[in-house]
Amino acid sequence: MRELLSSFLAGLGQGSVYALLALGFVIIYKSMRVISFAQPALMLAGAVLVSYLVGPFGFILAVILGVAGTALLGLGIERTVIRPMVGKPVFVVAIITLGIDIALRVVINGFIGTDVRQVGDPWGFARVSLFGVTVQERYIAMFVTTAVVITVLFAFFKYTRLGLATRAAAFDQETALAQGISVSSVFALAWAIAGGLAAVAGTFVATGAGIDQQLWIIALKALPAIILGGLDSLGGAVIGGLSIGVVESLVATYQLDYAPWLGDNFSVVSPYVVMLLVLLVKPYGLFGTREVERV
């Protein structure tokens, strides 16, 4: 029981990172109907930026600057590469983001080098006892930070003028334009927010083991999360992310005892299995909107 609980809590922590990344995907998808495959590169960029800034500025300030920097990077990508492609088929734009991801990651890998870089977080692998269950402190930090970030984000979308504009543009671009909403700044904002969220996620992913050149693969696990939640549902992204984290953690704890034939490290690919199963049952995810199309 204790093992189950501690595995569950670790999963929630890891899952909140997936939730942040998934939110980035969903925000971009809602605004431009495109899945940005550049998210792994943005995550890596955020983590590397923090690892360089943490020396002179300390952890908290480094994270804030890192988030700002990565948001700017996201904005820059949108302005230079994505903007000329507005109105083109979504597949083309998605493949362009894939190209950005590949090119950008090579540059970032140059900054990582062959060593493992540390983000200098205050938690490391320290553990704490919570109601009799031992959990790594960093998982608690992930969960709490994500909760705060998500609350702020949802409040932003619900209560501010810009948030309302974003929702309007996501609902119907042309009508939003006719009402005087600058859809292009909504696009820019979506990419900046996605960049910022990716930076936070990247920092947390890098806590503990540090940053190496393979870290980006973790960002792609947000894809099963958004499929699970539905591509256009913010709440779905959060729930999907948390569930994927919990599933992965539980599989990591129990799979070798109960299903050893699945091989070592099966937990790493378990999110994709969950994704395939969900898609067979619910093609638009748990909370996604069913597409209605006219000929």
Partner: peptide, 8 residues
Amino acid sequence: RGLYLAIV
């Protein structure tokens, strides 16, 4: 359709 398939 489309991007869902790409992800799968």
